[in-house]
Amino acid sequence: MIRVQREDFDTAAETERLVGGQHDIGAVVSFVGLVRDMAEGAGASSMTLEHYPGMTERELGRIEAEARARWPLSETLIIHRFGRLEPGDRIVLVIATSPHRAAAFEACWFLIDWLKTSAPFWKLEEGPEGSTWVDAKGTDDEAAARWQK
C-alpha cells in the first residue's frame, strides 16, 4: 500500500491497521524517517519536500512490488510526506510484515534504501543563510546497490 500525503501519520495506528485481525503474521518491522536539524545549532531550519505527483506513486508501487517478489511478505506499507516540514517531523514510514522476521527486516531495509535513490522527491532546506537544495549522497547509492541482484 502506498500513500503520498502532506499530513502527518500515526505509526502505531498504521501498524495496527496492517496487522489487526491477521493471525499469520509473525513479524512487523517498521522504519520511520525524521527531519534532522541540518543547521546544527546555527538557527532554526526547516525543509520543503517537492515531488512529482503521479510518478511518485508509480515508482513507490514498483519498489513495493519488487520487495513482494523477493521476500515472502504478508503486508507492506509506504507513507511518504511532502510539503513543509520542521526538524523532528516524520517524513517517511515503511512497514513490512511477514510470517518470519528475516523477510520483514530485509524487505523494510530494501524498501527504504531503494526509495531514497528512485522515488522522485527533492529536499529544499531553509536555514538562516537562505535556501539550498539538498545534494544526493553517494552513500545512498551504495546502500541501494547492495540490493542489486
Binding site: 517517511v92 526509495l115 522515488a119 522522485p120 522527491f121 527533492w122 529536499k123 544526493a136
Partner: peptide, 26 residues
C-alpha cells in the same frame, strides 16, 4: 512517461518528459 530513463531513450511528441536533479527523498 513517468519512468526513469537513460540519455539514449527515445522521445516522441506525445510524451511527458520530466527533467530533475538526482532524487533526495526518504
Amino acid at each position: 512517461n513517468q519512468e526513469h530513463v537513460g540519455l539514449d531513450h527515445p522521445v516522441r511528441d506525445g510524451d511527458e518528459v520530466a527533467l530533475f536533479p538526482p532524487v533526495t527523498g526518504g
